[in-house]
């Protein structure tokens, strides 16, 4: 049964970073998302899983205020998305960025400060220091002057994450930040995600690799146009849920379970 809240104050009391309420998003009359309800608690690392065209990107874009829902509401810390531009940093899919645009990596990362600037105002020294620190955090400071078109796939992912770090938001929404990235980039991105969680930031990530989910994420949301399940990783990664979402064989789930158990033992 769907829980509804009578007031926005109630959401704050529950410590909810993002609340998605009966959201439907359609494209040419067909729903990409259908009556999705979810509440993302503060300070969690949430993976959004689902097959291709299940609406993962649409959900993240709707949270970021990029897509306008046909029906329903999205609240960011109890505010509507258009009033929360400084609360949420969005990292788009790598191939959604025009990498041929003639700017340097540093300029791209510095763009993260633009939401704090007024019209005609240019980034100040302080903003540049923050951008430089973000570049250092993702290990790209040596490439600062390089044109963005010359970056590798993994470096492009890291650059977009550095830009999000400059935004210094409370919520980070990342669309496939590790897809087709190299090992070094994945390790750095995972470290950044865990640092963000340690700082009590809320991180919502669409993700494809099932095997790494138990290792990286606290919570999982299973999506296939409708939200099919959301909760703690160990509770959600069940055969039943996966079959509902992917129509997938139980064998793969068993492998994931096996991996989860092994990593659990290692942690012990």
């Amino acid at each position: 049964m769907i829980r509804t809240y009578s007031s926005q104050e109630h959401i704050e009391q529950l410590n909810i970073a993002v609340k998605v309420e009966n959201v439907t998003v359609e494209y040419k009359g067909k729903p990409n998302l259908f009556n999705v309800n979810m509440e993302v608690p503060c300070g969690v690392l949430l993976a959004v899983l689902g097959p291709n065209n299940s609406g993962k990107t649409t959900l993240l874009k709707t949270m970021a205020g990029i897509e306008k829902p046909t029906a329903g509401n999205v609240y960011i810390y109890s505010k509507p998305t258009h009033a929360a531009k400084n609360d949420l940093a969005y990292v788009p899919e790598r191939n959604m960025v025009n990498w041929d645009f003639p700017i340097s990596l540093f300029d791209l990362v510095l763009m993260g400060s633009y939401n704090r600037l007024r019209r005609v105002e240019h980034p100040k020294k302080k903003d540049k220091v923050i951008a430089w620190e973000a570049l250092e955090r993702v290990g790209l400071e040596k490439l600062a002057k390089k044109s963005i078109c010359d970056l590798s796939r993994g470096e492009k992912h890291r650059a977009l994450i550095a830009r999000a770090l400059v935004q210094d938001a409370r919520i980070y929404v990342m669309d496939d930040p590790m897809v087709a990235a190299d090992e070094e980039s994945i390790n750095i991105i995972v470290e950044v995600l865990q640092e963000l969680r340690a700082k009590k930031k809320t991180v919502i990530v669409s993700h494809h690799e099932f095997v790494t989910i138990p290792r990286y994420f606290d919570m999982v949301a299973l999506l296939n146009v409708k939200l099919l399940g959301m909760g703690k990783t160990e509770d959600i990664l069940t055969e039943e849920n996966f079959e509902k979402t992917y129509g997938m064989s139980a064998g793969m789930i068993k492998n994931i379970r096996l991996y989860m158990d092994e990593s659990h033992d290692r942690n012990k």
Partner: peptide, 13 residues
């Protein structure tokens, strides 16, 4: 500049 590089990011802010 932002709109030329990344329309989604522009919309998100």
């Amino acid at each position: 500049k932002i709109d030329g590089v990344d329309k989604n990011y522009a919309a998100s802010i």
